[in-house]
Amino acid sequence: MPMLSAVLRPTRSRALALSAPLLLVTALTGCSSAPVAPAALYDFGLAPAAASGVRLPTALRVADVAGPSWMDGNAIYYRLAYAQSQRTDAYANSRWVESPVSLFDARLRNAAAARGQVVGYAGQEVPMLRVELVDFSQVFDQPGASRGVVRLRATVFKSREVVDQRVVQADAPAPSADAAGGVAALTQASDRAIGEVLDWVAGLQLTARTPTAASQPTVRAR
């Protein structure tokens, strides 16, 4: 029996020695699986219920909204203009549900459809609106004061020719100096920019003019 107990002692020590790394791995695994706060996801919210602004004089085709490559993701960008205006940063735990280009595209189409008829086909007599986003960010002019800035270039084509082009910038104050405030400001600025673009389109001469009696040539009898 003494010999048996002597044999068992090193076996138990060896088991404890082998189990120590396993306990350490288990502890580390438990730490790595600790819950991480999910990112807050934002969109533009519900579109305005009632249409406002001048109605479109003709059916309109809306091309896919374009934007620079840095807008392809779903990051919410901000700029500290008071410190380094050439630098942009993104919020760590806040995201758009999809790219701001896609969100703006859907908002533009809904607003255009509320003012007239939006078609998906191309034709010589159907004017086309193309919008390119240039800037879409929350700008901090002071540490506690920011605004949403939406800048775009809008072009109207008809029969493959440029009818007119315009650059639009819309700003809206942010209610808070955080991602939620930036989202609210950018949504409001987007609606303002879209409204200005559609008012501009509605004022263009996009329909064929009907000759008046005064403008028609006079045929004299011989």
Results as ranks from 00 to 15, higher is better:
Asp199Trp: 09
Leu103Phe: 07
Val119Glu: 04
Leu28Phe: 00
Thr29Tyr: 09
Arg220Tyr: 03
Asn74His: 07
Ala90Gly: 01
Val149Tyr: 00
Ala63Lys: 14
Leu28Pro: 08
Ala106Cys: 10
Gln86Tyr: 00
Arg151Cys: 06
Val201Cys: 01
Ala15Glu: 10
Arg87Gly: 02
Arg109Thr: 01
Pro173Met: 04
Thr88Ala: 14
Ser13Tyr: 12
Asp164Glu: 10
Ala83Arg: 14
Ala51Cys: 04
Gly73Phe: 09
Ala208Ile: 06
Ala83His: 13
Leu4Ser: 03
Leu133His: 05
Thr11Cys: 13
Leu60Tyr: 00
Pro68Ser: 11
Ala177Lys: 14
Leu204Asn: 01
Gln216Pro: 11
Trp70Ser: 11
Pro217Met: 12
Ser99Glu: 05
Gly30Ala: 05
Trp70Val: 14
Arg61Pro: 04
Leu108Gly: 00
Ser19Thr: 09
Ser5Lys: 15
Gly53Ile: 14
Ala179Lys: 07
Leu22Gln: 10
Ala50Gln: 15
Ala180Phe: 11
Leu206Thr: 08
Ser137Pro: 03
Ser176Gly: 06
Glu161Ala: 15
Trp200Asn: 08
Thr88Pro: 03
Phe136Gln: 14
Ala185His: 01
Leu18Ser: 09
Ser146His: 05
Ala112Thr: 10
Ala179Asn: 09
Ala15Gly: 00
Thr88Ile: 15
Val167Trp: 10
Val36Trp: 03
Arg220Cys: 12
Leu186Thr: 06
Gly67Arg: 12
Val65Gly: 04
Glu161Trp: 15
Gly67Glu: 02
Ala122Ser: 07
Leu80Tyr: 09
Thr29Asp: 06
Arg192Asn: 03
Leu28Gly: 05
Ser69Pro: 11
Glu125Asn: 06
Tyr121Lys: 15
Phe136Val: 09
Arg95Met: 00
